[in-house]
Nucleic acid binder design. Structure first.
Length: 297
DNA sequence: AATGGCTTCAACCGCAACCCT
DNA sequence: TAGGGTTGCGGTTGAAGCCAT
């Protein structure tokens, strides 16, 4: 018989967190930094298990979390990354600064999956006529995300820098910690390792929109269908999801460098070619389908 | 106003990977 | 190297809010 779950212990509180508990947790982390979650309930007197404290911090209280509506370009990125990575929410979240994996997962399950289904049924006759592609779902995602990409990525640098109008008590709590965040090496490392978008956000080595589109590219789709990105597990010890995330980011950077080194136009991917070969009005057609099938879309 | 169905999302659970001794 | 403890991740749940009737 295995170890009982930590939350089964008598006297451990479950359910929604109160503002008082939030304040206790935030002020403790402000003093000691995140980590060593085991000792958090003991040291703070919170009647929560360590796991619950960690989750509350990472998904809700952590500074820099953006809440509220997802922007169209965020939607596009999620759809595209989901097509590339599958349900690797943590990996997807690493490309969307300020969004938590839980938020993305919820948004996918409650909004995007429905849109995708609606889009699929709207396109069904067209998709069944296309026998050359083995993964319709993937192509579907790609078409949706390319649509979003074309519409919204041209404004990406502006969009990224735009603040969120959402305001909450949590955000206020988070503001208290912003100064501390800047001085915490542990957190800085985590943020800096996470996203190539961050690099652009900070005005560093700028990445063009074309590069971002290419980075989330269709290079892994060939005529045999979708192939998972090649991950170099051998270069890492055990090939955990985290390592996969890091390696995908490395691929992105490598591809970007490669494209810069020869100053040439990046080669067209399978799907990009396919889309260009099709009538130029295809994107408009997709938009029309989406508008007809779902007014909110 | 009451109620029942639907949607959303914070929180929980179980498992796997990682870390430490 | 093994084993126990800790952390991270993805799937799932359920309470709360919304909306139609």
């Amino acid at each position: 018989m295995g170890r009982p779950p930590c939350c089964d212990k008598v006297g451990i509180k479950k359910g929604p967190w109160t503002p008082e508990e939030d304040i206790i947790l935030v002020s403790y982390i402000q003093q000691h930094g995140p980590g060593n979650w085991r000792s958090v309930p003991t040291n703070t007197g919170l009647l929560r298990c360590s796991k619950s404290c960690r989750l509350r911090w990472t998904n809700y209280l952590r500074p820099g979390i953006k809440r509220g509506n997802f922007t169209p370009h965020e939607e596009g990125m999620i759809i595209h990354l989901q097509a590339l990575l599958g349900n690797k929410w943590a990996a997807i979240a690493s490309y969307l600064p300020q969004r938590t994996d839980n938020d993305i997962k919820n948004y996918w399950n409650t909004h995007l999956k429905k849109k995708l289904n609606k889009f699929q049924s709207a396109l069904e006759p067209q998709m069944t006529a296309d026998n050359s592609t083995t993964s319709h779902q993937f192509v579907l995602n790609e078409r949706m995300s390319l649509d979003f990409t074309n519409q919204h990525f041209s404004n990406l640098p502006t969009a990224i820098n735009q603040g969120c109008s959402y305001a909450s008590s949590t955000e206020n709590i988070s503001r208290l910690l912003q100064g501390w965040m800047g001085s915490s090496p542990k957190n800085n490392n985590k943020i800096n390792n996470n996203s190539f978008l961050k690099e652009e956000q900070e005005g560093g080595d700028l990445i063009s929109n074309e590069e971002i589109v290419s980075v989330l590219s269709f290079e892994n789709l060939n005529n045999e269908g979708w192939q998972k990105p090649k991950i170099d597990h051998q270069s890492t010890s055990k090939g955990s999801p985290n390592e996969e995330k890091v390696n995908i980011t490395s691929m992105v950077v490598a591809e970007r460098k490669l494209q810069r080194s020869d100053n040439s136009t990046p080669p067209l991917s399978f799907l990009e070619k396919w889309l260009l070969d099709e009538s130029t009005g295809q994107i408009e057609e997709i938009n029309q389908i989406m508008e007809l099938s779902d007014p909110i879309f």
